[in-house]
Design a protein around this nucleic acid. Structure first.
Lengths: 119, 119
DNA sequence: TGGTTAATTAACGATGTCGTTAAATACCGA
DNA sequence: TCGGTATTTAACGACATCGTTAATTAACCA
């Protein structure tokens, strides 16, 4: 999904995979090598290497060099940006239960005359 | 990217597209028909219809029926869940500037002897 | 019933993703 | 320099995504 080259799109795309999210969760505990990161999963090393490249391209991780190891660590900015994007909707979902009452009555009034099939 | 059938994966995948995010932003202002949602974009109606299906499958929107119109509205749960997932890392990115100092010293000490190439 | 508007589905092509195995690269240590 | 460990790249196949145009469905209105 990296047809979309903007930063936040590649962030969300990178987060849309359970393996990659698990890798991030592991990295939240501290720096880790590729082999260590791969251990919990049943996929091959090249597959993990690709996942790490996706995460790196999204700026979610950065990689150093320690002899033949490539230690990975989290980079905070993209997650921060993603959380900020979602936060713009926070008020909406926090209030939505209250609003839903009003809202449903409006809808109900509307639908009294039509939409007897629903969807 | 809906090979991954878990809820949060499909949420992030749905959010990984600028058109879909713009649609959500529009819907935060209130219910809207497909034609209204399509207006700001240069893509065809079927393309918008597909985007809406992706959003609906992710649970981000729901659709009603009002005569020949299909009014769309936001559904809060998935965004809430996505924000909660990211919140688990909030402490990390909020503290990371402080930590970075300590962290970089550890790294620097390690790298004094190796990694003169970096990447 | 027939015409119009709103929206979805079908069919297709271009391109992206994700996994695999095999080969290449980077670095260490004797 | 050779052998071993860690990791990436290459090449391929299966399948998903995203856009298009043409056809279809749903509902209104005269």
């Amino acid at each position: 999904m990296s047809l979309n080259t903007d930063a936040i799109s590649s962030t969300f795309a990178a987060l849309a995979d359970p393996t990659r999210r698990a890798i991030l969760a592991r990295l939240a505990l501290g720096e880790s090598s590729v082999t260590e990161l791969a251990a919990p999963f049943q996929v091959s090393m090249p597959a993990i290497s690709r996942h790490l490249k996706v995460l790196e391209n999204a700026g979610l991780i950065s990689r150093g060099r320690d002899a033949q190891w490539r230690p990975c660590r989290l980079t905070p900015e993209p997650m921060k940006k993603a959380a900020e994007w979602l936060d713009a909707y926070r008020e909406y979902w926090e209030l939505s239960f209250d609003r839903l009452d009003d809202y449903l009555q409006v809808i109900k009034a509307k639908e009294t005359k039509r939409d007897r099939k629903s969807r």
